[in-house]
């Protein structure tokens, strides 16, 4: 218990929060790196996923990317990037590594979300004379929204974790508090840093869960619709043949409802 108390003392000491390597600056760096990398990753992954999902091609690519993303250690990519000439360019190696690991969950989930939008509804919308972009924007995106957001949450978890690891490779962020603590054999500092990182990850996750609910284009309508859909007996039977992409079950992060 002594370490925990010491860690608490470390956390509540004002001088640890200010200064160039204080918690304030490290937190700012962490949020900046996370935000920027997520923005870049979204800009890359989402258009590709929406387009592929819309035309219904490239399923294997989308799935394999996420499998590769799981097999490659983040630390290895950080290490390799740090040893390239890129390391002279400040945050760029870190940002590149973060983007690389944020793209797979975004791409896979968004692809599956669009692809698995109820085919009957899509057909009906096409029959009503909707154009491709209309179909995507008004039908497929609202229907695929939950999975797109699931991808965003997985990507955020991944990026926050990777940004922490970046500290080992000399990057900024809250991980620096942990590595600095290790280097100086200051266990309370290590624990305090780890605590901050864990809290940040959980808070970001919670913020995204709330944002997901507030921004849902079908807010309030989705559950009723799902409930009715599940009741129809033919629904389950149609499932296996309807879709070619088989996403490993673990790629579906749990919805907030399960909390």
């Amino acid at each position: 218990m002594g370490t925990v108390a010491d860690a608490w003392t470390w956390l509540t000491t004002g001088s640890n929060w200010s200064g160039p390597s204080g918690i304030g600056v490290r937190l700012g760096e962490h949020l900046y790196l996370t935000g920027m990398s997520l923005a870049i990753a979204c800009a890359i992954a989402l258009p590709i996923a929406f387009w592929l999902g819309h035309i219904g091609k490239g399923g294997t690519l989308a799935i394999n990317i996420s499998n590769v993303g799981r097999a490659v250690p983040t630390l290895a990519v950080l290490g390799l990037l740090m040893l390239t000439p890129l390391r002279m360019h400040g945050d760029w190696p870190t940002v590149i590594a973060l983007v690389l690991f944020a793209v797979p969950p975004l791409l896979t989930n968004a692809y599956v979300g669009i692809r698995e939008a109820d085919r009957d509804v899509v057909e009906a919308a096409r029959g009503m004379g909707m154009s491709g972009p209309q179909l995507l924007g008004r039908v497929e995106l609202p229907l695929g929204y939950p999975l797109v957001m699931t991808g965003l949450r997985s990507a955020t978890v991944q990026v926050v974790a990777t940004a922490t690891l970046a500290a080992i490779a000399g990057g900024g962020g809250l991980g620096r508090i942990i590595t600095a603590g290790f280097r100086t054999y200051n266990t309370p500092m290590v624990v305090a840093g780890a605590f901050l990182v864990a809290v940040l990850a959980l808070v970001l996750e919670a913020v995204l869960v709330v944002a997901e609910r507030l921004l849902d284009p079908m807010r309030g309508r989705r559950d009723g619709r799902r409930g009715r859909g599940r009741g129809t007996p033919g629904d389950d039977l149609a499932a296996p043949g309807a879709e070619g992409a088989d996403v490993p079950p673990g790629d579906r992060k749990p919805a907030p409802a399960s909390l």
């Binding site: 978890v157 974790a161 780890a194 990850a201």
Partner: peptide
């Protein structure tokens, strides 16, 4: 829910918290 919360904690933080 609990296992998901655990999953959200970055690995470096997880290992560091277990060290003490």
């Amino acid at each position: 829910g609990l296992t998901t919360v655990l999953y959200t904690i970055p690995s470096l933080a997880m290992f560091s918290l277990l060290v003490p």
